Amino acid sequence: MANYRRELGYLLPYLGPKRLQDIKPMDIRQALDRMAAQGLGTWARSKALTHLRAIFKEALALELVHRDPTAAIRLEGSTRARAGRTLEPGEATLLLRAFDSWPTWEVGMALRLCLAMELRVGEALGLRWEDVDLVEGTLIVRRAWTALGGKGILTEPKTPHSRRTLPLPKATLERLKARWEELVAKGARPRDLREAWLFPSPKDPGQPLNPHTLAHALRKMVARLGIPPLRVHDLRHSYGSLLLANGAPLELVSERLGHANPSITLNVYRHLLARERAAWVVDPEDLIHRPTAQA
């Protein structure tokens, strides 16, 4: 089907180059389980499954397949968008220090980018040095590095809006500049370095870190710090929550997160926005009698 690849979206890398007629219920279940292992929540998996159901519904109508393998698949929990755990300011401070002190610079900095730049795991690991402008202080998301069958594969960003240019926070930019200077001092040629992965695998520098590496490291960090369990995706969620709590417009937060549209951001952070709106209590007398500035 012409729309097969486009509509499957993020689920496609997990199913591989299978023909519609060859996809079995177990293939779908394993693909959804792999998405969950990558930190993708119920809502993301539900959306992917909805796309797949629509494809098989059309395929049945066109008599391209004789059965719908999605009929046997059920997702646990609610299919509504749910917010992850949000870090408390003290927890974020402890984690930022833990990132800096982690033995492997690549792991610590990748986790910092997930928290400080609202990146998805795959987006962070898919970065090359050429995607970082150390002069302008920006970072471009062009690709993602995700897990499939125990190995990593390069994919397009999750949506067209996920391909974006982001401003680098000052502290993060300083750390990236220091790392660049360190690598050049060790003999790396700038031209070659720009084509290198920002977070190369220690086993094979020609590939990024294993997609599961960050989750393993974060579990160790939170255990040592004595804070409640945390997913890597919760780092990204925490940044979005901090932006909204500090008055950032919903459209800006949606743009930074790479959401397809602000309605997705609203669904994820509706609970937070409800609390923020409840805090706005304005007496009409205050508005009417507020003194005006003198000319």
Rank of each mutant, 00 (worst) to 15 (best):
G152Q: 00
I23V: 08
L173D: 00
E88S: 05
D133N: 03
G187F: 04
T146S: 11
Y269K: 12
W280Q: 14
L127W: 02
R231P: 07
G226L: 01
V135L: 12
L11C: 06
E7T: 15
E285D: 10
E118Q: 12
N210P: 15
V184C: 09
L230P: 06
S254P: 04
G16L: 14
L125C: 09
W180H: 07
A81L: 04
P69V: 03
E276G: 15
L243I: 13
L20I: 04
V268Y: 11
H216R: 10
M221L: 09
A36E: 03
G126F: 01
D286A: 08
P205Y: 13
L183W: 04
H66G: 13
C114R: 03
G206V: 14
A72Q: 04
R270M: 03
G9V: 09
G122V: 14
L125W: 12
R277D: 12
R290Y: 12
L75C: 14
R164F: 09
Y14Q: 01
V268D: 00
L252F: 05
P69F: 06
A278E: 11
A274P: 00
N246H: 11
P103Y: 02
E136G: 07
P25N: 08
E255D: 14
L273G: 15
L242W: 10
Q30D: 00
W129N: 07
L49D: 05
P160I: 08
K170Q: 10
D286H: 10
L75T: 06
G122T: 12
R270I: 03
D234Y: 03
M35Y: 05
T265R: 01
L235Y: 05
L40H: 06
D22N: 01
G240Y: 10
A37I: 03
W197Q: 03
A178S: 04
K186M: 12
V253H: 04
R275N: 13
I28E: 09
V268S: 02
L94D: 14
F99M: 13
R34M: 06
T79V: 05
A72H: 03
L287S: 00
A37S: 14
T155P: 08
A2S: 06
R29N: 03
L64G: 01
L209K: 15
P202V: 05
L166C: 02
D131M: 01
R29K: 09
G137E: 02
